[in-house]
Design a protein around this nucleic acid. Sequence first.
DNA 1: TAAATTAACAGTAATAATTCTCATTATTGA
DNA 2: TCAATAATGAGAATTATTACTGTTAATTTA
Lengths: 125, 125
Amino acid sequence: MTRQRRVILEELRKVRSHPTADEIYQMARKHLPRISLGTVYRNLEVLSDQGLIKKLDVSGDRSRFDGDLTEHVHIRCIVCGRVDDFPVRPAVTLPEINNDCGYEIGGFVLEFSGQCPQCKKAEVC
Amino acid sequence: MTRQRRVILEELRKVRSHPTADEIYQMARKHLPRISLGTVYRNLEVLSDQGLIKKLDVSGDRSRFDGDLTEHVHIRCIVCGRVDDFPVRPAVTLPEINNDCGYEIGGFVLEFSGQCPQCKKAEVC
DNA sequence: TAAATTAACAGTAATAATTCTCATTATTGA
DNA sequence: TCAATAATGAGAATTATTACTGTTAATTTA
């Protein structure tokens, strides 16, 4: 755990937004002006592998990261790209979803992930 | 509707997979050997704007496209990146989701999208 | 039909997010 | 402390995608 890695983790845990690598780079530079963008990318990868942060599998052109490890749902703005947490109540059905968070909801993505039959078979045992 | 655009649409409708722009380029080249990748990107954009195909908002580094316009759910292999359709039965709850499709499910992404309060306000009327 | 206009094309250059390389610096363990 | 190991900063390389440039094909109009 280097100084750089600690700063990145602390900054990410401070915010409720879901910053991109470059945004985290800007945040970290306030504390370590000589930190490089490559270091930020490398440490976000390491921290994600260690399970200390989550790399968000959201759509959009840039990766986003989350210091909140609890399972929750996101909502993304189709105009500016920001990602917020989405409040879900139990047993909510799709037509009942309303606009608690001020968004005007236009759509949603539900994507499962896992290993396909071919890759499961090919896996080393 | 040019020859290039028609071939792209037909090839995409033929398959049940969810090919990337480059994969569609390879498919189209079998019929039009001189087609360029830029043309494929341009026409995928146009077809998507016209609502004839869907640009998938799935995670991963590359965009994927779908000729099936009906609303459905996807499953992505975390190893090879392929995207398949996921069969959903009504009122299925998360712990009940089983492996009809041969995948070993590891997780899921649920992301809503829409306009955030700020962008809604900034919108031209 | 033929000229004029428009739209789309192929090929290539530019862009942007991310990853890689490598010499240098920091951290760790005996 | 000092060697061994791991991480860093800076910048180059990579990759998916978009934009640009002249050319060609399609469509419209006279």
